[in-house]
Design a protein around this nucleic acid. Structure first.
Lengths: 125, 125
DNA sequence: TGTTTTATTGCAACATTATTGCAAAACAAT
DNA sequence: ATTGTTTTGCAATAATGTTGCAATAAAACA
C-alpha cells in the first residue's frame, strides 16, 4: 500500500467534499496528475481499504464518499438533485418526511443490501 | 401508443414479477420475440406512460417495476441481495431495523431524489 | 376489406462508463 | 546501487445503453 501522489490527491478531494463525487467530478478536481485508468484503480483500492465507499447514483453511475476505515457505518443518507445531479450527504436529523422540507422530493428509494433469506441460509457470501 | 406484442409481453413479465427486473432478466423472460434495442425502447415508453418505474440498482444497472399510471406513489422499498443480485419489493411492514430480521443487512442506502433548495428556487425542472 | 397514416421495429453504428493485460516506471527495503 | 513489489500508462476490451434511418406493422378510416 503506497501513498502515491494520485492516491493522496484523490483521497483528499473525496475527504474534503461535502457531497459524494462522481468520476468526472473527481477527475476535474484532481487535474491532470494521472491517467483515467489510474483514477479508477485508486478508487478501487481506496474502497478495499475502507477509506471510501461507493454507491450507484440515480443515473446509474457510481459516486464515492469518504469514511473512516475504523468506522463500520452501514447506513448513509443522500439527496440526489434531479436538476444539477449533485449528491449531498445528509445527517439523520435532516430527514423529516412530513415536516416542512427545503428539498422537494420527487422520488425516494431505500435500497437495503445484504443477504436474502435463501442466500443467508446457503452462506454464499 | 400501440399495443404491440413486444409491449404486451414486456409489460406482462414486469407486472407478474415479485421483484423489479433488470434488462437481462426481462430479455430471458420474454424470449426471442424482439430485438435488444426494442426492449430498451419499449421500457422507455412504458416509463413515460407511467406504467413502470425505473431505478438504478446497487450495481449501477437499471431495474424496472410495474406501477399503476394513476398511482402516484413516490416511495419504494427494495431489498438487493449481494449474492444473487435479485431485487425484491418489500412493503413497509417488512422493514424493522432492530427487530429479528430474516434478511442480513450489509448496507442500506436511502436515496431521495427531487430538487435541492437551489434548483427548486430557480425552477429548473 | 383495402388504403393511408403513423408508431414501432431491426440493423448497424455509436456512446458512455468501467475494466483488464502487459510492459514500463516508481517506490521501498535491503 | 540492487532487488522486489506496487503502481502507472497505454491500448484494447467489456458491459450497458442510445441513436439514425430505412423497413415494417398497427390502428384508423374510407
Amino acid at each position: 500500500m503506497r501513498n502515491t501522489p494520485a492516491r493522496r490527491k484523490i483521497l483528499a478531494v473525496i475527504t474534503n467534499s461535502d457531497h459524494i463525487l462522481s468520476y468526472p467530478e473527481i477527475k476535474a478536481l484532481i487535474g491532470e496528475i494521472c491517467s483515467r485508468v489510474t483514477i479508477y484503480r485508486v478508487l478501487e483500492r481506496l474502497e478495499q481499504e475502507g477509506a471510501i465507499y461507493k454507491v450507484a447514483g440515480v443515473d446509474g453511475t457510481f459516486r464515492f464518499g469518504s469514511q473512516s476505515p475504523k468506522d463500520n457505518r452501514n447506513s448513509y443518507i443522500h439527496f440526489s438533485c434531479n436538476a444539477c445531479r449533485s449528491v449531498t450527504k445528509l445527517n439523520e436529523d435532516s430527514v423529516t418526511i412530513n415536516g416542512p422540507l427545503m428539498h422537494q422530493i420527487h422520488f425516494s428509494y431505500l435500497s437495503i443490501t445484504g443477504l436474502c433469506p435463501e442466500c443467508r441460509e446457503s452462506q454464499k457470501i
